[in-house]
């Protein structure tokens, strides 16, 4: 028996020697692994720079033909018709109309949903509601577009007989439904990550849930709630298919939700659906509009994350 153990020990020792002899080679391999993984990580940076470079390049080419002032401050967008005019404001106004409408739907509803989940719903209700909200968040936007066109718009038609087939209201509602789960889950995270003792402190003073929510939880979690709103709005700005399908393709500056409008995203889709050759001014308009879109969403995301971090500072 003892002999047997000795044998095993010896072979183990041999193995470890073998291992040591290889160790220089392994170190080389270790840095090879590190290098290739680093390359993977670099791809994300390359992506960002490519986006900036390509949007920048095509936009500059575009500005060689269209003065930057005409683009940024022009109030008429008719790049596909003669005589062409390239004022981006109608597209921005269309986008804002959708943003305002969808925020009016999703911000109060999302916040109230998160409050319901955090304060009132029992564990069983939560187990039903949360997955359903996740499903709502995961449904592709083209499906929401179909829903807007075949359900929401006909219903709106019953309330507002004068409404156009494609209209900003239907688009706003459907985009609101799409960003609602994001708002409710971020707000829920924001409030449930507060120390439990804060809530208890409020209840121990004889406050009702309503009072605890509005004068303790919401104000304390406010930076993060605002971050949720900003991030959701940034998503609404970039939302494409639902708006293409529901809100139409009529670039105009209007505040009337019952009319057809065009957003920045739906303009890009409209051009892409036609057969535009690379290099033409129509092709470049897509990138110029895309650049505006990119800058807007990027700025909002950065601001959103700033708010989020400030929150972490305040709660130690």
């Amino acid at each position: 028996m003892f002999h047997f153990l000795k044998l095993i020990m010896r072979s183990l020792l041999k193995r470890s020697n073998l291992f040591k002899a290889n160790s220089i080679k392994k170190d080389w391999f270790d840095s090879f692994v590190k290098g290739s993984l680093g390359l993977c990580a670099l791809i994300s940076i390359i992506t960002t720079f490519s986006i900036i470079f390509i949007l920048g390049k095509e936009t500059l080419l575009f500005f060689e033909q269209v003065p930057i002032g005409d683009f940024l401050f022009g109030t008429k967008w008719e790049p596909l018709l003669e005589p062409q005019s390239f004022g981006v404001l109608p597209l921005i106004s269309g986008t804002f109309l959708i943003v305002i409408g969808s925020s009016l739907v999703a911000i109060p509803a999302g916040l109230l949903t998160s409050i319901y989940l955090g304060e009132y719903a029992g564990p069983r209700t939560k187990a039903i509601v949360k997955p359903i909200l996740e499903i709502l968040a995961g449904i592709p936007t083209v499906v929401y577009g179909y829903f807007a066109l075949t359900v929401i718009t006909p219903m709106l038609k019953m309330i507002f007989p004068s409404i156009e087939v494609f209209n900003a209201l239907s688009g706003s509602i459907v985009v609101g439904i799409m960003i609602l789960p994001m708002i409710s889950s971020l707000c829920d995270d924001a409030m449930s990550s507060l120390p439990r003792s804060l809530k208890e402190g409020g209840y121990a003073m004889g406050a009702t849930s309503f009072e605890v929510v509005w004068s303790i939880l919401v104000p304390t979690a406010l930076p993060r709630i605002v971050a949720a709103f900003i991030l959701a709005i940034s998503r609404a700005i970039g939302e494409t298919m639902a708006v293409v399908m529901a809100a139409g393709a009529t670039p105009k500056m209007t505040m009337n939700f019952l009319e057809s409008i065009q957003t920045m995203t739906s303009y890009i889709v409209q051009v892409s659906l036609g057969d535009t050759p690379a290099g033409g001014v129509e092709y470049q308009t897509c990138f110029a509009v895309g650049a505006v879109l990119f800058v807007m969403t990027l700025v909002m995301n950065i601001i959103g994350r700033k708010f989020y971090k400030r929150f972490n500072l305040e709660i130690e």
Partner: peptide, 16 residues
């Protein structure tokens, strides 16, 4: 009840 029976917790929990 909680108004008439106050409570002080283990860890100080002032509101923000």
């Amino acid at each position: 009840l909680r108004k008439r029976v106050g409570m002080v917790f283990q860890r100080p929990n002032p509101f923000l």
